[in-house]
């Protein structure tokens, strides 16, 4: 029998430790969390912190310029119940978020189906299609502002020229007109996203399936429902949910076009929160409360979205 020298023992032990660490790192959950940690940190820092700060501010009467405010409980929230502009804001946001979506979906689908056909210059057109979506909204909104101008609007000019109207249309002048105008601009901006997403889906539909269905007697429409739609269904649902969420949380288009006017009648959550919290009154507490009213809706939509994505993965 021999005794191992001390050095060997130490070596063996350090080997064990290294093995253990290596083994530990080999485990998938550990590694997964390790890789996710930078993302988590960034999320904590830039999303969670402002979110919880926002909740805190919404419970105070803090105003712009003053270092801090008094804790007022849920008063900011209850006060908004009595605010007529806030009522309008809620209605507007829902109109803006939900009415535009069917149009974007339908137009996007149509565009995608068209662009999926073979024709010359197809790629140029496909690229051009994305423009409304790539151009910064702040910029394209300015173009819309010009198009909707009470005096210089080319729309009005054209319609007058054709003898269809007598005087200029007040595109942004009344609540109804302004909301319709906003929705049209929103549809213009949002349609490409639908079109591109659906086009990508269409390209994933195997040509053979269309041919098989054609031989079996399906016409174009029947083939769309039997072959195309099932393949792009997931994309359509996810795109729609995303679009609703984005429209709900929009700010730029409304801010540039109407600033919530006329007479505060076209606000959506984002613009009204900004106006109350920062723009006009500087009542940060109430502003924060307004934007937090968006939270339940967005949370529900996001939950649906996530559930759907997961169900597709399974």
């Amino acid at each position: 029998m021999t005794t191992a020298p001390a050095g060997t023992v130490r070596q063996v032990m350090s080997f064990r430790l290294r093995d253990r660490v290596r083994h530990w790192l080999d485990s998938e959950p550990v590694l997964a969390y390790l890789f996710m940690s930078p993302g988590w940190l960034i999320l904590l820092l830039f999303m969670s912190y402002p979110f919880f700060l926002g909740i805190w501010i919404s419970l105070t009467d803090r105003t712009v310029g003053l270092p801090s405010g008094e804790f007022v409980g849920l008063r900011n929230y209850t006060e908004l119940f009595r605010d007529r502009t806030f009522h309008l804001t809620v209605i507007n946001t829902f109109i803006y978020g939900f009415v535009t979506v069917p149009f974007k979906l339908f137009l996007g689908l149509l565009l995608a189906l068209l662009l999926n056909q073979a024709f010359p210059m197809r790629n140029v057109l496909r690229a051009a299609l994305l423009l409304p979506w790539i151009v910064p909204t702040a910029l394209s909104s300015l173009a819309w502002l010009m198009l909707y101008d009470a005096v210089l609007s080319p729309f009005s000019w054209l319609l007058k020229n054709w003898g269809l109207i007598e005087s200029n249309i007040a595109f942004l002048g009344t609540r109804t007109n302004a909301i319709i105008s906003l929705c049209i601009a929103n549809i213009w901006r949002g349609t490409p996203f639908f079109a591109v997403a659906i086009l990508a889906g269409l390209q994933a539909v195997p040509q053979e399936l269309h041919e098989a269905a054609a031989i079996e007697g399906a016409n174009r429409v029947q083939r769309f429902f039997a072959v195309t739609l099932p393949v792009i269904k997931g994309i359509v649902v996810i795109t729609t949910l995303f679009s609703i969420i984005w429209t709900f949380a929009d700010f730029q288009l409304v801010y540039v076009l109407t600033k919530g006017g006329p007479a505060n009648s076209t606000h959506i959550f984002g613009t009204y929160a900004w106006q109350i919290g920062i723009g006009g009154a500087g009542k940060l507490g109430i502003g924060a409360a307004i934007s937090l009213y968006m939270f339940p809706v967005l949370a529900v939509l996001s939950a649906i979205l996530l559930r759907y994505v997961r169900s597709q993965e399974a």
């Binding site: 195997p206 053979e208 098989a212 269905a213 031989i215 079996e216 399906a218 393949v231």
Partner: peptide
């Protein structure tokens, strides 16, 4: 005459079964 009126059936190399 279009495929559907030719009264034929085709078996594709990759089967082309409707996945859903």
């Amino acid at each position: 005459i279009p495929p559907k009126d030719r009264d034929i059936a085709m078996v594709f190399q990759n089967y082309a079964l409707y996945p859903h």
